[in-house]
Amino acid sequence: MSPIVVLEGVGKSYGGVPAVTDVNLEVAEGERLAIIGPNGAGKSTLFGTIAGEHRPTTGRVTFDGRDVTRHRSSSRAMAGMSRTFQVARLFPTMSVRDNLFMAALTGQRRGIKFWDMFSGHREVHERVDRAMEDSSLTELADAQASALAQGARKTLEMAMAIVQEPRILLLDEPTAGMGYEDARAATTQLKRMLDGRRDMTIILTAHDMDVIHSLAERVVLMANGQVVLEGTPREVAEHETTKALYLGHGGGAA
């Protein structure tokens, strides 16, 4: 399998303080990779350099054979990268349906046009309907996004990312801010939404070992801005380094 995302010597510092240093990482097409690590390990920063939110200070990010290091988020999205945020970002004044419509429309790389009527696009609307069924949001179709509960906000954002049919799906802490039971339900829901999309590459960051066990095939563990361990979820979870890191920092659900 050819790599779809390649990071070469990626580093990012804020005002001289390094958050990530010299990370080399290859993600194969169709792979499901989790980036884990204690708070401050640099996983969010690394995730941001892949999504286009942060520009790395050193190194190179390649997506599908093209150097995208200097590309903005919108260009990366159009090239087939969709993402969620730790705290779900939605269009608050739009309905659930319209949120999904914007995602489905832009995901088709159709672009935005003055003469292109919103009410057309029957097949986009059909995809939106299916996406709402897959994510159990059909009942909330006409609710304004700002009125949704926390769990539904996360689900909607994931549905928006998935309905874009991206080549690579970036999930930033998919269960962040949820209680134990909500997180379990959200994980099950997410697995269901990803059913039959084995070709979609996924990179996610997570604290929650349960999410990692159910979604990831490979895990990279970060500490102090560097990758310190790689392996299957089981290998990494049981490794001494992981235990030391998480216990040492006194946090994390691992």
Partner: peptide, 21 residues
């Protein structure tokens, strides 16, 4: 139009809009 809807999207959340492309 889709452009009009994109304007609303940008007003609501420019980060989300950019992340969608």
């Amino acid at each position: 139009s889709t452009a009009g809807q994109a304007m609303r999207a940008v007003r609501d959340d420019p980060w989300r809009a950019a992340a969608l492309g």
